[in-house]
């Protein structure tokens, strides 16, 4: 029992980060029907930023907010350079465009930085544990859970209570009608990228605290996790994305603890397989957004 509670907390710690990434992907899918496979590049850029700032002698207190700002800037630049030009294009074109951005950014880092991973120090407290009863809680997991909660509540407030949030949701539900209400396409799409950048930035801080390294492919794993979580949640749905992220985190932790020794390296593969199976039987994801095709 205690073991299960422990695993659930671990899972929430993992899932929280996935939820933030998935939410960013869902926000962008909502306004422009694009699956952003380049979302991980925000993490890559953040990772190098952290590395350079560490090399300049700065600490996490300065680095964390900087990383968020950098992630936002990167998101806005990617939108401006690439995604703006394929708005409304066929799905095939948009999918390949986002993969193209993913590969191009990766190549830029290989070329101008290095193909190798660079290490930077992780904060000391992330290995601390608290013992409560039989539970040993990693401080890091708790920090992630709290930060995720705060970020999600902030996002919820933003979406529900501000005019920006209302216009973003309006654009996600019906883009043309939103334009008829006076919502500017460029502005609302840029806003969606800014929001996804903030969410990715927060996720990046924690992801990097745990991994402590920067490399051209640093964003691949978080991107896949985010996309998968968003897919589980049904892509268009924001609450679905959050649920998808948490589900993914829990499943992973439970799998790792239950897989026989020697196969733990297969966790990612098994998770991927499960999600592929989900898609075979429920192509719309767990949470279905109903769309009627007009003939």
């Amino acid at each position: 029992m205690i073991e299960l509670i422990q695993q659930i907390i671990d899972g929430l710690g993992r899932g929280g980060i996935y939820a933030l990434l998935a939410l960013g992907i869902a926000v962008i899918f909502g306004v422009m029907h694009l699956i952003n496979f380049a979302h991980g590049e925000l993490i890559t850029v953040s990772a190098y930023t952290s590395y350079w700032l560490f090399a300049s002698g700065l600490n996490w207190w300065f680095i964390a907010p900087t990383v968020i700002v950098v992630a936002v800037l990167t998101a806005v630049i990617i939108e401006f350079v690439a995604f703006r030009w394929v708005r409304g294009a066929p799905d095939f074109t948009m999918l390949m465009t986002s993969f193209g951005v993913h590969f191009l950014v990766q190549a830029l880092f290989v070329m101008y930085v290095s193909a190798n991973f660079r290490q930077f120090p992780r904060p000391g407290w992330i290995f601390d544990t608290w013992r409560i009863g039989g539970l040993s809680l990693e401080v890091f997991d708790l920090a992630v859970i709290v930060a995720t909660l705060v970020t999600l509540l902030g996002t919820y407030w933003l979406l529900q209570r501000t005019m920006f949030g209302v216009s973003l949701r309006a654009a996600a539900e019906d883009f043309d009608t939103a334009r008829l209400m006076g919502i500017r396409s460029n502005r609302v799409i840029r806003g969606a990228f800014v929001l996804s950048g903030v969410l990715a930035g927060v996720a990046a801080v924690f992801w990097l605290m745990r991994s402590g390294q920067a490399g051209p492919t640093a964003g691949l794993n978080p991107m896949l996790k985010g996309v998968l979580a968003a897919l589980i949640g049904g892509l268009g749905s924001l609450s679905g994305a959050v649920l998808g992220g948490i589900t993914l985190g829990l499943v992973e932790v439970l799998l790792i603890s239950r897989l026989p020794g020697g196969t733990a390296g297969l966790t990612d593969g098994i998770v991927f397989l499960l999600i592929a199976l989900l898609f075979v039987f429920r192509p719309q994801g767990l949470i279905t957004v109903r769309r009627v095709e007009r003939v």
Binding site: S167, R169, A170, E173, D176, T177, M181, G182, I183
Partner: peptide, 19 residues
């Protein structure tokens, strides 16, 4: 009509007045 069906009535009206 194309009202935003996920929104409340109030939010629909507020979107209309966004400008």
């Amino acid at each position: 009509r194309r009202i935003f069906s996920d929104f409340t009535v109030r939010e629909n009206l507020l979107v209309g007045g966004i400008t």
